[in-house]
Computed example of a mutant assay.
Amino acid sequence: MDLKLEAIVLPVSDVDRAKRFYEAAGFRLDVDNTFSDEYRLVHMTPPGSQCSIIFGKGTISTAPGTVQGLYLIVADVEKAREELVGRGVGMSEVFHDAGGLLHHGHEGGEAVHRGAGQERIEGPEPGRTSYASYATFSDPDGNGWLLQEITERLPGR
C-alpha cells in the first residue's frame, strides 16, 4: 500500500503576506481561490516536492505560527541556504548535531535540543553525512521549517 503525503495545512494570520513569502522562497503557486468572504484557499508547492502546503482564510482553526518541524530535504544545505537568503528568507546558519544524525527539535525557526549530551554545532557535519546538517527558517507567522541535507538515503528509507 502506498501512503503519499499530499499537503500540509499551515495556520497564517495574513494570507497575502504568507503567499508573498512562499513565492519569494521559490514555492510554486498552484491554486489561489476565494470561495466566499470567509473562505480562501492558497495551495503552493516547494520546488521539487510532491507534497504541498495549503493556507488561507477559513482553512484551519489552529493559531498562526504553531506548526513546527517541517522538513525540506536538500542535496546541499549550504547552497540551499544561500539561495533562500538571496531570495530574502531569514535563515539560521548551517549547523549539525553533536549527538548523532537526527535533529532533536525545532521551535520558532531555531533548533531546540533535548537530552543530555545534545549540542548544536555551527557548520555542516564534517563528513557531510546524510541526515546530519541543517538550517532553519520561519515564515512571517512563525511556522518553522528545517532544511536537512540528504545525499544518500539510509537503507529502508
Score class of each variant (00 low, 15 high):
G56I: 11
A98N: 02
L72Y: 01
E122S: 14
V89T: 06
T59N: 12
I121K: 15
E152V: 13
G142I: 07
E125K: 14
F55S: 06
D76L: 08
G109M: 00
T151W: 09
Y71Q: 12
P126W: 09
V15L: 10
T59D: 09
E78G: 09
Y131L: 07
P11Q: 13
S92I: 04
F21E: 00
A63V: 12
E93R: 14
T62E: 14
S49G: 03
T129I: 11
E93G: 15
G109A: 00
E122R: 14
V12H: 03
E122T: 11
T45M: 14
A111E: 03
E122P: 04
D76H: 07
E152N: 05
L84E: 02
C51M: 10
M44I: 04
D141S: 06
E125Y: 09
D30R: 13
D37F: 04
G105Q: 03
E152C: 07
E78P: 03
H113F: 10
R153M: 13
I8P: 01
P46E: 10
R157H: 04
R114D: 05
G117C: 07
N33P: 00
K57L: 15
S92K: 03
V112C: 04
G58N: 08
A116N: 02
T129F: 06
G69S: 11
G156M: 08
R120G: 01
G48T: 06
Q68D: 13
D32A: 15
L147Q: 04
D30H: 02
P46T: 05
D37A: 15
F27N: 00
V89Y: 00
V94T: 11
S130N: 12
S52K: 12
L3E: 08
T129S: 10
A111V: 11
R17E: 08
S36Y: 03
E78H: 06
G144C: 05
E152P: 00
I54S: 06
S92N: 04
F21Q: 00
G115E: 03
P124K: 15
E152I: 06
L72N: 02
G123N: 05
G156E: 05
T129P: 00
V9S: 13
D32N: 14
P46I: 09
G86H: 08
V94Q: 05
V12K: 02
K19E: 13
V15Q: 06
L154Q: 10
Y39P: 01
T59L: 08
G115F: 07
R87Y: 00
A80F: 07
A24L: 01
A98L: 15
V67R: 10
E83Q: 15
E6R: 14
E6F: 06
A98W: 03
N33G: 02
P140Y: 08
Y134W: 14
A116M: 07
A75I: 04
P47C: 06
H96C: 09
A135T: 05
L3F: 12
H103S: 08
R28N: 10
T45P: 01
Y39C: 05
I60P: 01
M44E: 01
I121Q: 10
D97K: 07
G86C: 08
F35L: 14
R81P: 01
G56H: 09
V74S: 04
S61Y: 07
V12M: 04
A80V: 06
P140C: 07
E119C: 04
F27P: 00
E125A: 10
